[in-house]
Amino acid sequence: MKYFILIIFLLSSAYIFYEGLRDDPTYIPSNLISEEIPEFKIESIKQYESFSSADLKSGEIKVVNFFASWCPPCKVEHPQLKKLSEKYKLYGIAKKDEIRNLTKWLDDLGNPFVKIGLDKNGMTSIDWGVYGLPETFLIDHKGMIIHKHVGPIMKKDLEYINKLITNVK
């Protein structure tokens, strides 16, 4: 009997362990989903219009993207951001970027953002619970975070994001 209990325990532990292995260890679920956007401060960049938390608290669905010109995956998702910008308002927060590099990057690749700000020391990114770049947040018309996408938005993700936004509308 005692060996039976032990075997049952070992088998159930092995199953839980196996299930755990299938999880993506790089993905950390956001604590801010269904929460109001955090209060934050970003530096304005001369060439572009900046924004604050007040800009995101009303109006239509908005997309907030954390990016940087030094981040290669951000370049990968850029065409998808441009596609999203045809339908929705995109707000960009450049993390620890040099203004000169950022301006050149946006000039070369195109600027999908309606407003851009600079998170010079990474503190705004912490306010938003960002742990890597790029990260993208969907904000509803009341200023609540409805979805967070970690990593570059690929073509296959666009459909899911569009579906999410349509459901909210």
Binding site: N31, L32, P38, I126, W128, G129, Y131
Partner: peptide
Amino acid sequence: YIHSRYGDF
């Protein structure tokens, strides 16, 4: 504060 941003992890 940090817990509220990044969760239990």
